[in-house]
């Protein structure tokens, strides 16, 4: 049985449907420093260690040596309007050890994004500094327009 809830078929509904599998794995950026042969995934809650091993071996032809899993508690937050506490879903993480010589590096998904961010932060900082200077300059002359200056 599927763990997904699909809308019941009714007359007039689409004839062709896509049914997604229960098992999925998502490669995630590791949270701590790892040896090069360790890869971190988040995966569907139903997957066992054996499922993860065979998933990687059968579908992606990746040979695994060891699989360790943990279930991370979902984060809680306050509802902005009502103030009650809301909890996000738990996530199952899998730590997959590859063979000794193998290495995997998480790809740089958005090349150049860091530089753009740096540039943006630099301009933000410059404008903030400009504003503080302007405020400092006009502190002693309240009510005077900013352009009125020597």
């Amino acid at each position: 049985m599927s763990t997904r809830w699909y809308p019941l078929y009714q007359r007039g509904g689409p004839q062709l449907r896509v049914f997604l599998p229960n098992f999925w794995m998502k490669l995630v950026r590791p949270t701590g420093e790892h040896p090069p042969n360790l890869v971190q995934f988040s995966c569907s809650m139903e997957m066992t260690k054996f499922d993860i091993k065979s998933y990687l071996e059968k579908i992606y032809n990746v040979k695994t040596v060891e699989v360790r899993t943990r279930i991370a508690l979902g984060k809680t937050r306050r509802d902005p309007g009502k103030g009650y506490v809301v909890k996000a879903d738990d996530i199952k993480y899998a730590y997959v050890t590859l063979e000794k010589g193998e290495s995997f590096e998480f790809p740089d998904l958005f090349p150049g994004a860091d530089e753009k961010m740096d540039e943006y932060e630099k301009t933000l900082k410059a404008s903030k500094e400009g504003f503080t200077k302007y405020v400092e300059k006009n502190k002693q002359r309240p009510g005077m327009p900013g352009w009125f200056s020597i």
Partner: peptide, 9 residues
Amino acid sequence: FKYDPRVIG
């Protein structure tokens, strides 16, 4: 070995 020992279990 510079990593946390938990990485190898």
